[in-house]
């Protein structure tokens, strides 16, 4: 499979070395998903989308504010970018299903990030309710990408329910703490036959690179970009880190675990300038 880069920049050239990311039959050149919350202004958002070359962005659904005029966020998202509507605010499966159905009615596609959270301190996803919502929404024809705690049984249940991808958290939402549950994400990467998109907690481009190096198919970042001093620059840095991590994963020596538990010399251990027989 070949990918035609959208422009001739170095970032796009690298993509030729890779196959596209496929989710629900749709091909993506970029493996970097961007959340649109918390941006100081819409200009920062638009510039970050452009700088990141992202092809999937998340949005949320809320009651409109009757007291003031809100800008329409969709005006700042290019038409060729896939909209992934999250069900944030849902505390159980039923509420998530309601939000997803409302979102579909808007006419911007049927991609939904199931997010069921019933804990305001840690904002941890409720895997059980997430599975229930996935079962209903997949049957209704939604492209379901569930945000979840990296648990193998839950991931299997989500795959069984018809999820198009699985999105395990790296650490707590907005915490910028990186891959705190790395070994359990690795199990999902190794065992689940769906794209694994690491979502939440990735606070630095190096975290994103780490997730990709271990074999994640993509990452989703919001807070670390939106709250950066220069969001567009950080968005670009994340996109480059995602590609670097991806190439590192593709180019790895599959026979040798990384990191190894013993040393392996970089220089030959023969032909020294002294007599080795002594």
């Amino acid at each position: 499979m070949t990918v035609t880069p959208s422009n001739s920049s170095a970032l796009s050239e690298e993509v030729k070395l890779d196959t596209p990311l496929e989710i629900a039959g749709k091909m993506f050149t970029s493996r970097f998903l961007l959340g649109t919350g918390k941006f100081k202004n819409k200009t920062d958002l638009a510039q970050s989308i452009e700088a990141s070359k992202t092809e999937i962005v998340t949005v949320a659904l809320r009651r409109i504010d009757l007291e003031r005029h809100d800008e329409n966020i969709l005006e700042y998202i290019p038409k060729n970018v896939t909209l992934l509507v999250n069900t944030s605010g849902a505390r159980n499966a039923k509420e998530a299903v309601r939000i997803a159905r409302l979102a579909k009615e808007a006419g911007y596609g049927n991609w939904v990030k199931i997010e069921v959270i019933n804990d305001s301190k840690y904002l941890l996803p409720d895997n059980q309710e997430t599975v229930k919502a996935a079962e209903v929404l997949a049957v209704e024809g939604f492209v379901v990408l569930p945000y979840m705690y990296p648990d193998l049984y839950a991931a299997r249940a989500l795959a069984q329910a018809g999820a198009a991808a699985v999105m395990p958290l790296g650490s707590l939402i907005g915490s910028n703490r990186g891959l705190k549950v790395k070994e359990f994400i690795q199990i999902l990467i190794d065992e689940i036959d769906l794209p694994i998109v690491v979502d939440a907690g990735l606070g630095a481009p190096s975290h994103a690179a780490e997730a990709m190096e271990m074999g994640a198919d993509a990452v989703l970042v919001n807070t670390a970009v939106a709250t950066a001093g220069n969001p567009a620059l950080i968005a670009r840095a994340f996109a480059m880190a995602v590609q670097a991590g991806r190439l590192a994963y593709l180019g790895r020596d599959r026979s040798r675990p990384v990191p190894a538990m013993t040393a392996d010399p970089s220089s030959p251990l023969t032909g020294f300038l002294y007599d080795q027989s002594r």
């Binding site: 959340g35 649109t36 919350g37 918390k38 941006f39 958002l45 998340t58 949005v59 949320a60 659904l61 809320r62 009651r63 409109i64 809100d70 329409n72 966020i73 969709l74 509507v85 999250n86 944030s88 159905r101 409302l102 979102a103 009615e105 808007a106 911007y108 939402i173 939440a200 989703l220 919001n222 807070t223 939106a226």
Partner: peptide, 28 residues
């Protein structure tokens, strides 16, 4: 119940109705 936009003209609002108006905002 969701009301499609092309039905907004036909739907009569009655006393006691509960209406929700929602739109997209930024989110992760």
């Amino acid at each position: 119940a969701i009301v499609k936009k092309n039905q907004w003209d036909e739907i009569r609002v009655n006393d006691g109705d509960t209406i929700e108006l929602v739109s997209f905002i930024g989110g992760g």
